[in-house]
Amino acid sequence: MKVGVVTFPGSNCDYDSYALVRHVMRENVEFLWHKSTDLQSCDLIILPGGFSYGDYLRSGAIARFSPIMESVIKFANSGGLLLGICNGFQMLTECGLLPGALIRNDSIRFRSHNVYLKVEETSSAFTNAYASETVIKLPIAHGDGNYYIIGEELRQLEDDGRVLFRYCDREGNLTKESNPNGSVNNIAGIVNMERNVLGMMPHPERAGEKILGSVDGLKVFESVKAALSTLTTAGKA
């Protein structure tokens, strides 16, 4: 597996993704500069968390027009695996690869703490290593994480089983209290129709080692690794 982590001006979780892939998983990983257009044959592209362009205009709105994004969008449209975490999720909605938008937390507070999430769908390239309905613990750190989507688009998202993660309490109940930002239906992470693009507000890359308080995020990356090896095997057969 070769992972590419895009660095934008203002990204601050790029090193977390890099460290997890390189030092925990011992897989190949490269930083990709936002001004480049070369994805260096990576199998998974990560749009990391942070505050690209100081969150000016709207979170992710300026980064979405970085030169590398054209290649990233092309990559995703041809089936490449793309993971947007936090600010990366905001970029994905801004560029239209994922529906809806991320607006200000309903509390107007910046929320930085651990949350519990229910893994709702395990039949995806990003969640196949989880047991169905597992409750996991991941950190969040955002001010604009309130996922907004209405009407037909919301219905489609739910009907297609494209909500992979929902905020819940420790026991897995989807309560109002466990929703840190006001997101519709406690939605924390979704995939596109083709299921090769995941956007999520919580940070799996910051929960890959015991010393960090949780290893629950590691399985997102292990899932991708497993999905890629299946693809390779299928390709060779």
Binding site: R104, D106, S107, I108
Partner: peptide, 13 residues
């Protein structure tokens, strides 16, 4: 401006 119906927590505060 935010569309009618979209939560504006700042305005509310």
């Amino acid at each position: 401006k935010l569309k009618d119906g979209v939560l504006d927590p700042e305005g509310k505060t």
